[in-house]
Every structure is written in structure tokens, then in C-alpha cells.
Design a protein around this nucleic acid. Structure first.
Length: 283
DNA sequence: ATGTGTTCCTGTCCGC
DNA sequence: TGCGGACAGGAACACA
């Protein structure tokens, strides 16, 4: 579900509720999600102050005063909901736990943060803060697309000679972090590249052109508060609005938006997932 | 190395 | 209105 822009939106929304505040109560309502929760999770969370909320790829990382870091992954359907006292506004009543509310954190500032995840593909874990980079879920993830380690030479070097379709390559978190099905489709549309093309058979110049396009798409989506499909919401309950800017994702059969292109958006399966593209102007 | 398919789950939507 | 099937933002895994 949430890709980098949505996770970044959630992180930003959680900051006023969590950063600088102490976890006063941790209600763990089931043994785990995609993976079992770590041993003694409530005890390890209770009394911990959240120093900082970070993001790495599609993961939210909360550095705690206990020397541990809480890792949160939203999977496909995970949501972080805030209720109660947010940023000095008093709304004392917390709603009763709803279906699929799996973890409930009561913060010292008066906010309640609820991890709701219908499909339970999400995850939570705790690790030593200093060892966060070596956590098994994080250690093989590639560079942040908005960071300095992701650049033209890097992408060209890692795609040279690869027989993998460019769509699958960009979806692989080991190459670059944070891209998912929506944004890969949108990026390849802007680049005019056919998602089925083998990465190694695309010119270095065109591969290089993907770097600024990836950055632009992600930055625009973050600025828009992410994309609200189905039930994705920002932590404050507002909807993101980048979905209104989709050129191809979810637009099967729609007219291509490229000037002068008379094509229509097609949907094809690629490695078990839907790819949306314009066969006429993506080559 | 690179497919592809399956799996983990629940919810929603669409056609009959 | 019910029912079955397809499909959904992720990603690990087994296997050809």
C-alpha cells in the first residue's frame, strides 16, 4: 500500500503526537502482524520517550530514550490513526478500539496513536538504535531516492547488462528504496519508457533521465500529502490528493495525457502485479 | 540471474 | 440481494 510519499506523510503527521513525548501505555492487541511482535514489547515501549521519528524507505523508525528503535511498516493496508490531544488541542475522548486496531500507544502529550491494519501485512519490531541499519528488514535496501547516494551514475551502473524489465528493476527495493507500484508506473510514463523493456537495453542517457523524474514524482507526491486510494489517510485524517495527478495508474482504457498522443492507457500483468502504461508513447 | 507463481490477510467492487 | 471471482499501495519465498 503506502509507498515512500505516503509513509513520509504518515511520519510527518505523527511528529506532533509522538516526538518528545513518552509512551505511557502500550496496548498490544494480538501476537503479531506479518511477523510476531518482539518479546516483551509493551514493557520495552512503556516509559520510553520518542526522541525522533525517521523514515527509511517505507519504514517509520522511532528512536527511543531506552536506546532502542521502534520499526513500523504499514504493509498494504496499515494506517496510523491519531486521536485525543493533538498539538495542544483538546479532544479528550478516544474512540473505542475498532476492528483491526492492533497496537494502541497512549502518549504523554495526550495523543493516542493506533496502528490499524486490516490485511496484517504490516510489521513492528524493536532493535538497538545503533544497529538499525543492520536490521534484517533494512540491511539490503538500496539508497534513498531523495538522497545523495542515488544519482545518474549509480543507476546506470546497476542496470547495465541487466535483463530484468525496467518495471521490476525499479520495484526492487535493493536497487532504490521506497518506490512501489503506483510511482513506478508514473515514473516510467513521464520517462516515456515501456515498462517491459529490459533495463540493460535502455540507453544510459534514458536511464539517467529516470533519476530526476523519480525525484520529481516523489517530491510532488509528498507535497500533495501522498495518494489516497481506498482508505489511505494522513494521520490527521485528511486525504492526500496526488491520486488526482495520476497519468496512468488506475486509468486503464483512459486517453493518454501526452500532447498529441492518441493512445489509451493499457493494463498488463507483470510479475503478478498490474502495470499501467501507454503503449503508444512509452517505448 | 531472472522470471513466475504462491503466500500472508481482509475488504471492496463488479458482473451475473 | 447474494455469490463468486478479481483485485488491492508490499514483499518474502519456493521453484523453474
Amino acid at each position: 500500500m503506502p509507498e515512500l510519499p505516503e509513509v513520509e506523510t504518515v511520519r510527518a503527521g505523527l511528529i506532533p503526537a509522538m516526538e518528545g513525548h513518552v509512551i505511557e501505555k502500550a496496548d498490544i492487541r494480538r501476537p503479531g502482524l506479518r511477523f510476531p511482535f518482539p518479546e516483551r514489547m509493551p514493557e520495552r515501549l512503556m516509559g520510553a520517550r520518542v526522541y525522533r521519528l525517521r523514515r527509511r524507505s517505507k519504514y517509520i523508525l522511532a528512536d527511543l530514550s531506552t536506546g532502542e528503535t521502534l520499526l513500523i511498516h504499514l504493509g498494504m493496508s496499515g494506517r496510523m490513526l491519531i486521536s485525543g490531544n493533538i498539538a495542544g488541542e483538546f479532544h479528550h475522548d478516544h474512540p473505542a478500539p475498532a476492528k483491526h486496531d492492533h497496537v494502541v500507544l497512549d502518549m504523554s502529550g495526550g495523543a493516542r496513536v493506533t496502528f490499524n491494519d486490516a490485511r496484517r501485512f504490516g510489521a513492528m519490531d524493536l532493535m538497538a538504535t545503533g544497529a538499525a541499519d543492520t536490521h534484517w528488514l533494512l540491511c539490503d535496501i538500496g539508497p534513498e531516492p531523495l538522497g545523495n547516494d542515488f544519482h545518474e551514475d549509480y543507476l546506470v551502473k546497476h542496470l547495465t547488462g541487466r535483463a530484468i524489465p525496467i518495471k521490476a528493476a525499479l520495484l526492487d527495493q535493493r536497487l532504490v528504496a521506497g518506490l512501489g507500484n503506483i510511482y513506478v508506473c508514473e515514473v516510467l510514463f513521464r520517462a516515456g519508457i515501456d515498462p517491459r523493456r529490459k533495463a540493460g537495453r535502455i540507453s544510459a542517457k534514458r536511464i539517467a533521465s529516470l533519476v530526476p523524474i523519480i525525484r520529481d514524482v516523489l517530491r510532488e507526491a509528498i507535497a500533495a500529502g501522498g495518494s489516497s486510494l481506498r482508505d489511505f489517510r494522513r494521520a490527521d485524517g485528511a486525504l492526500g490528493y496526488f491520486q488526482h495527478r495520476f497519468q496512468v495508474y488506475g486509468r486503464e482504457g483512459g486517453a493518454c495525457n501526452t500532447d498529441g498522443c492518441a493512445g489509451f492507457v493499457a493494463r498488463i500483468p507483470q510479475s503478478g502485479r498490474s502495470t499501467f502504461f501507454c503503449p503508444r508513447c512509452q517505448r
